[in-house]
Amino acid sequence: MKKLINDPQKVVDESVEGFGLAHSDLVTVHTDPIFIGRVGGAVPGKVGLVSGGGSGHEPLHGGYVGKGMLDAAVPGPVFTSPTPDQIVPATQAADGGAGVVHIVKNYTGDVLNFETAGELCAAEGIEVRTVLVNDDVAVEDSLYTAGRRGVAGTVLVEKIAGAAAERGDTLDAVEAVGHKVVANVRSMGLALTPCTVPHAGKPSFDLAEDEIEIGIGIHGEPGRHRVGLEPADALTEHLLTPVVEDLGIGSGEKALLFVNGMGGTPLSELYIVYRKAAQLLADRGVAVERSLVGNYITSLEMQGCSVTVLRLDDELTELWDAPVHTPALRWGA
């Protein structure tokens, strides 16, 4: 194992400290317990947005704290949920008096800990709503979930719900927009290689040189099946077809196409995947009106990618286009 780390047990603390120093104009890092807040604190009268989860998926979630997205993010240990005693102060810091929405990926630890934190915050008078993201079509259940996993669609939920909150929508309305995105987004990923959790010191799963895991989870959970080496176009079709069929999107509809890297895949290869995915959607009569390509929710140094399709209407398109200014995503601001 070769990694640019010091102590495997201090990876998250040191990484978050460096993140805060690099982006001090946008975020404030709180310690003991650790969470990342929007610089300047909660915006009075605005619905707060909080998300979080295990580290190792950067820039998710801390990279999306800022104007037009999250008000706070809570990093747990690598691939491990943050605890309620982190989530509660993050929620308090994000509360501007209009309530807070928790955006939670559908992993058992995340769900339970955010639920507990929400109950504790409610006891203190903070109204908390939850939007559960479960966009992965690869499997219904895994070692980490009951139901579908929350993966790359989380980025789109945070951006669009964040825009709704930023424009002054009510708590009910922001929650509804979040649920609307969840209902209209699907994802599926693949892995060319495993990744290595720093404190484990060995790959999280075994994958032969000539094997590719189709339907991988962002923690290295198993997918639908393994295939031999195939060209990128064939692999892209393995991902896009079940996404489109599950979403039920068809001719005459509009979409956002998101090709995400798992951390170790060159951008040039992601554009090859995007090229084929866009062609396949066009063949089905789906108009790709918005796009996102890059490493936005990763799995440490895993080589691989995921394909996400979001069905668009005028409201979702407007919210996607709204200004955003965070360390990892910014336009129009």
Rank of each mutant, 00 (worst) to 15 (best):
G125Y: 13
D95F: 13
V65Y: 04
P82G: 04
A122Y: 07
N106C: 11
P82R: 13
S81C: 04
A138I: 09
L132D: 03
E119D: 14
L60Q: 08
V131Q: 03
D85W: 12
G76I: 05
Q92R: 15
N134I: 03
T80V: 13
Y64A: 00
V128Y: 05
D95A: 11
N113M: 03
A94L: 12
Q92A: 10
A73Q: 06
T130W: 01
T116Q: 10
P84S: 11
G62D: 07
G96D: 11
A117K: 10
F114H: 00
M69N: 03
V104A: 02
G109R: 10
L132R: 10
L120R: 14
V111W: 08
V74G: 01
V133Y: 00
I103V: 15
L132N: 03
G97R: 12
K67G: 00
A138C: 12
I103H: 02
F79G: 05
D85K: 11
H102L: 03
A94R: 12
R129C: 02
A138Q: 07
Y64G: 01
A122S: 15
H61Y: 15
I87D: 01
Q92E: 15
V78H: 02
Y107G: 00
V78S: 00
A138D: 05
G96N: 12
I87R: 01
V101P: 00
S81I: 04
V128P: 04
V104P: 00
V131E: 03
V101L: 02
H102K: 09
M69D: 00
N134Y: 12
V101R: 00
D85I: 13
E127Q: 13
H57Y: 09
G96V: 12
G68T: 13
A98T: 09
L112M: 15
G63N: 08
V128M: 02
D95G: 07
T80A: 15
A90M: 06
V137T: 12
D136C: 10
G76T: 10
G66A: 07
G109D: 11
L60V: 14
G66Y: 08
A90P: 04
C121P: 06
V101T: 08
L112C: 07
E115S: 08
G109Y: 08
S81A: 15
F114T: 02
E124H: 11
P77F: 03
N113V: 06
C121S: 13
G62S: 14
G97L: 13
V131N: 02
P59M: 07
V65Q: 00
E119P: 01
E124F: 07
Q92F: 05
A93V: 11
D95C: 10
N106T: 06
G76Y: 08
A122P: 07
T116N: 04
G109C: 09
G118H: 08
D71K: 04
V100E: 09
P89K: 05
T83V: 07
N113L: 03
A122F: 08
A117R: 10
S81E: 09
V104T: 03
T80R: 10
P75D: 05
V111G: 01
A94I: 11
